[in-house]
Computed example of a mutant assay.
Amino acid sequence: MKQNRLAVFLKDKNKKPPLKIIKECTVLLFQKREIPFYYFKYLYRKNVVNYQDYIGTKEANRIKYRDTFHKEEYLTIISNKLNFSLFCKQNDLPVPGLVSHNFESHFFYKKQLHSVENLKGLMEFFKMVFKDSGQSVLFLKPISLYGGTGCYRISKDTLEEDLSNNKEFLLKNCCIHEEVVVQHEEVNKIHPNCVNTIRVETFIDKQNQIHILSAFMRFGVGSGFVDNAHAGGFYVGIDLEKGTLREVGHQYMEYGGAEYKEHPDSGFVFKGYTIPFFEEVKDLVIRAVKCLPDRYIGWDIAISKNGPVIIEANEYPSIFMADIAYGGYLKHPLYRGILEEVR
């Protein structure tokens, strides 16, 4: 459930003394030449002593929308989930199996077009797909939306209920229907109710060298089947060299701004946890960037029982999340160079 950011800040017992907050905000006001609203997302807390190492709103926007970081030809692939799935398959990049898709009432399966107008038609289509494909569950997501918005899971066993709840959205939107990733058993020990993905940010410098800037892992909470922080989940930074989780997870202020050292459902402690196949994750994103060389991308990677799987790419990843997970991007050896390029 979303909450008011101001209310979360006022109730937070971990905030710095008022005079210290005023002093730090004044420093940032002159340093960044903007009112530092971003300070109240996280930097006001007592444990944040290096508050000047974090990206400001103007800096984040200059990076996010820098035209030299993106090419339209790449964006048409990244921003369209159907294009992206087909592109990855063509280039032997592991992605969830694409089973079927729809453009509003036009449904496609195995090169055959099916016209679907109502719940009865939806039932007939997906019964046919489940029977023919051998799948028991499908993950449906809009071709052009982000942040877990409009994502649904439908099951062969509860098909009528699942489609009844989502038929209006399905028939008015364009979606892909994918196989569900079977998550690695070691990740299931932390949270088994959704696929918990790793966000990896990559950057291509002026010398055309590919770099992994940072990584963090997102976890769902409760029974929700998406891990996105905008859906109430949280994220934990990753040590790139060791492939282990850092100590503390962070939740968006809108959902309470909680900090976790262990998963609130399972009690699993994050610090030092070794992520399965993490070296393979890094190898995969480097290979993916070589295939799709947009200069700044956020990759979402799931860990299946057989290795990493690309869930999607994001041309405008949340810099603030990565900034907090890293512990202040301005102390990153590459980031000051990135900021110089966008000034």
Results as ranks from 00 to 15, higher is better:
H211I: 02
S136C: 08
N118L: 12
E262W: 00
E72P: 00
P18F: 12
G267Y: 00
Q251H: 12
N50H: 10
L339M: 06
H332S: 04
Q52E: 11
N193Q: 11
F270Q: 02
G249E: 14
V95L: 02
A7E: 13
E315H: 14
P317D: 03
I55T: 10
V309C: 02
I338S: 04
F30A: 05
I210C: 04
S164E: 10
Y329K: 03
N165E: 14
P308Y: 01
V285C: 10
I190K: 11
L119W: 12
Q52L: 11
N193S: 08
K305A: 08
E72Q: 13
I210T: 08
L171S: 07
L171F: 05
Y252T: 08
A231P: 03
K71D: 08
E160Q: 14
F107K: 03
I55Y: 02
F139D: 05
I198Q: 07
K2C: 04
E201M: 09
T158C: 09
E315M: 02
Y235L: 12
V226L: 09
P94W: 06
E280P: 03
M1P: 08
Y74R: 01
L98A: 09
P36A: 05
C151H: 08
K20M: 07
R218I: 01
K2S: 06
S144L: 11
V181W: 06
K120L: 14
N314P: 06
F9E: 01
K167P: 00
T68N: 08
V181P: 05
S304N: 01
C175L: 15
D53Q: 10
Q90Y: 10
L29I: 06
R287F: 03
S164N: 13
V48T: 08
H263M: 03
